[in-house]
Deep mutational scan, measured.
Amino acid sequence: CKVCGDVASGFHYGVHACEGCKGFFRRSIQQNIQYKKCLKNENCSIMRMNRNRCQQCRFKKCLSVGMSR
């Protein structure tokens, strides 16, 4: 997965992504979610083991690796 490094389940929203990141991105855009501000200057490292800790940084990384509708 380009977002968290887990095993990708396919090509989702323009990038190779796992089911977790695919679902997270889908919910984020469909529900237009505004995530809580990052407590670490929006510089969190997103990996499989910690991908749920900072939703703002995870969504930012989804966009930075090329995920789009």
Rank of each mutant, 00 (worst) to 15 (best):
K40M: 12
Q31M: 09
Q56F: 12
E19C: 00
K60E: 13
K2D: 06
C4G: 02
N43D: 10
N32W: 01
Q30I: 05
I29W: 07
R69S: 14
S64D: 12
C4I: 05
E42P: 06
D6A: 13
R69H: 15
F25S: 05
R69P: 15
Q56S: 15
K37L: 07
G14L: 01
M67E: 06
M67G: 03
K2P: 03
F24Q: 04
I46T: 08
Q30T: 14
K2F: 06
K37F: 01
R27W: 13
R51T: 10
F24Y: 05
S28D: 07
V65Y: 09
A8R: 01
N52H: 09
A8W: 08
C62W: 02
H12F: 06
K61S: 02
M67P: 02
A8I: 10
Q30W: 04
R58D: 05
S64Q: 14
H16Q: 15
K40G: 14
C4Y: 01
K40E: 13
C54E: 02
E19D: 14
V65P: 01
I46Y: 13
N50A: 13
E42C: 05
V65H: 01
Q55K: 10
Q55C: 09
L39M: 13
L63A: 11
G5N: 04
N50Y: 09
M49A: 12
V65A: 09
V65T: 06
Q56M: 12
I33V: 10
C54H: 07
Q30R: 05
F25Y: 06
R53M: 13
G14V: 00
C62R: 04
R51D: 15
Q31N: 06
N52T: 02
R58W: 15
G14I: 08
G14S: 09
R48W: 12
E19M: 01
M67I: 04
Q56C: 08
S68L: 05
L63R: 00
C18S: 01
S68H: 08
M47K: 10
D6G: 06
A17D: 04
K60I: 15
Y13L: 07
R48T: 12
I29H: 00
N52A: 15
I29G: 01
S68N: 14
R27T: 12
D6Y: 07
K61N: 09
R53W: 14
A17T: 08
N50M: 05
C54G: 01
M47W: 10
Q55P: 13
I46A: 12
S45L: 10
V65W: 00
Q31I: 04
L39D: 15
Q56E: 13
I33S: 06
R48D: 15
R26W: 15
M67L: 01
S64L: 13
